[in-house]
Design a protein around this nucleic acid. Structure first.
Lengths: 345, 345
DNA sequence: TTTAGCACTCAATAAGCACGAGTGCTAACA
DNA sequence: TGTTAGCACTCGTGCTTATTGAGTGCTAAA
């Protein structure tokens, strides 16, 4: 029992019908669409096969069929034809991203908004990982008698800061200046991972132990970089989800929003999607992502031209307009990758 | 028809009963509570009066009474006895706030979390306004051929950064260093409002026009400070609201979450509550806050010892445990005020 | 292999009914 | 004059019972 042309057509009709209406699709509806080439009974036979193969299911005996996760998966993998973006859509994306006086974080937040607005679903963005970012600049600002503020600027222009406690008396402004200069020169361009290693190595060197300035600089910077900042994501337009009947059930809604609030699962998913240069689609609550059952994520990574920095995506109900959302995510990811490349020389 | 002791008692019983159960309260329930001192009929008479005065209402003829916004207002203003915090609760608050190696933003985020966890409602925090913050430190980091990153550290240790475009060729690293030093010395301790004025004045001075360094420094800093950063709030534990039957209705829920997402109204409310040194309570969707109907906000400002910096609060359903939440908000606001005072010398 | 026909299922809707919680009103009572 | 008992009335809730109709599976004929 293979999938011939006709059963494919019927499967497609069921899925697209259900995406458009949100209702189960019956055999009559499909037969009508097919211009009297088939009777409802024929369609029913095919449907029975499709159900047996696990692509569709019926919520109850006397209802039509709805796609299963497997059905969506198959649809997305093999029969989806992605539309091109209209000129207007491309312009829209570009104009939103092209505010050049934004730092990366602000840009990404705007991208989240853009994705949410254009898709009418929820936009998500994984910001660049701290540990993968590159050292550009560090600066120490005294705060009080035993605390100072370390400000770190990454290669992407993202600013991270952390308060450091110093036990042995605060260095003078001048010493801090020098410590900063020293670090800025010797660590420039390294990833944080490398920075950590270099610092550890240098601290072992004999001469450092007797050079007060270097010792101070290294101690401070090791404090700055010793822990990873939490990975963070931006979630925009979560309330868009409330407009879809799929989440009319308060329980489903609650589950979804709690999952948004937890962030962890979403970070994992977005993190995974950095591995491929293609748009990735995660459907339903497969395996450990039960909290997202009923939802799909369309995501794509963004880069600085070479390495993956993070990823962006859209979360919507599983019956989402894949063909329209995919190109938006794709185009946006490529656009900001290009922008970041240019921006970071 | 005044409010004698008895009608006060009944009003209180209705409100507290409804807060505890979420259900309308009938005359029988109240009569029983009062140990046979009153018959249901008597209670009904009093209730009729209270209804006429607008303190309570009945959802429909054959249901009990529920408090109106006016009823809650009256309850909160005149008959609420706030409980003291237990030692354990105080310890809990302190231990959450006393992570000394946090900068103010991280502290405030944690406070939002704390408020949400302790109250089981939603915690909100208005972060210190940019324009009211004090100048502590500025720093310029070159990004590309025509853009540099300005990093500003406020008196509270909050870090703001902004990308500046420079048309006439990027200053050298040395020049940027000097410009920073000059600004750090001459602007230290001023509020941003003052800074703006001083910059404008200095730019007029004759000698500045010919001193390239000063001119550069002033131009850059004026770009940095020309626009206000958006006021921002932190909202934590919004999904806690989903656990209350008050928001079981999807429409009510949707309204509330959209209001959270908009932020604007909430910022306004929290901003207002900075004016008083007391805990403020806003009930229901009075006047223009229709989106928050059914909710109340308990808020208190925090200071650095002298000036108000922002405010913190808890949003819950109008039938919220005021007597338990008020002291939490109050104590937390005072605690972080003390901490910030100490921290900022 | 396709299709027409038919019996069957089941969600959704509406209608009817009993129940009970709660009310307002009146009249009796202290 | 304030309080209470009694009673009729209202209305939401929950239950049962039809009714409807969309959709199915199966069978037999084309």
């Amino acid at each position: 029992m293979g999938l011939n042309q006709r059963s494919l057509g019927i499967l497609e009709a069921i899925i697209e019908g259900h995406i458009a209406s949100g209702e189960p699709i019956g055999s009559r509806t499909i037969a009508k669409q097919h211009q009297e080439k088939m009777s409802p009974a024929t369609v029913r036979n095919v449907m029975a096969d499709l159900e047996e193969m696990g692509f569709i299911a019926s919520p109850h005996t006397s209802a039509g069929r709805i796609p299963t996760d497997k059905g969506y998966r198959f649809y997305v993998d093999t029969m989806l034809h992605v539309r091109d973006l209209s000129l207007k859509q491309r312009r829209n994306i570009e104009s939103h991203c092209n505010a050049v006086d934004l730092h990366v974080e602000a840009l990404l937040k705007r991208v989240g908004n853009l994705l949410s607005d254009m898709s009418c679903y929820t936009g998500v963005v994984l910001v660049p990982r701290f540990s993968a970012s590159r050292f550009r600049h560090i600066e120490f600002v005294p705060l009080s008698h035993n605390r100072l503020l370390a400000i770190f600027v990454s290669g992407t222009g993202a600013v991270q800061n952390k308060i450091l406690k110093v036990e042995e008396g605060l260095p003078s402004a001048d010493e801090l200046q020098h410590a900063g200069n020293y670090l800025n020169q010797s660590l420039h361009g390294m990833t944080i991972r490398q920075v950590r290693r270099v610092i550890a190595e240098k601290m072992q060197e004999e001469r450092v132990k007797y050079d007060r300035l270097m010792h101070q600089a290294l101690t401070l910077s090791s404090k700055m970089f010793d822990t990873d900042m939490d990975d963070d994501i931006i979630i925009e337009g979560a309330t868009n989800m409330l407009d879809y009947p799929d989440f009319a059930d308060p329980e489903a809604m609650k589950r979804l929003f709690k999952a948004f609030e937890k962030k962890k699962l979403l970070i994992e998913l977005l993190d995974m999607s950095q591995d491929s240069s293609e748009v990735q689609i995660y459907i339903g609550g497969q395996t450990r992502y039960q909290d997202f059952r009923g939802c799909s994520l369309i995501s794509a990574r963004y880069t600085n031209g070479e390495e993956a920095l993070g990823s962006i995506g859209v979360i919507g109900p599983s019956r989402m307009f894949y063909s329209q959302v995919i190109p938006v995510v794709d185009y946006t990811a490529r656009l900001i990758s290009r922008m970041l490349k240019r921006e970071l020389e």
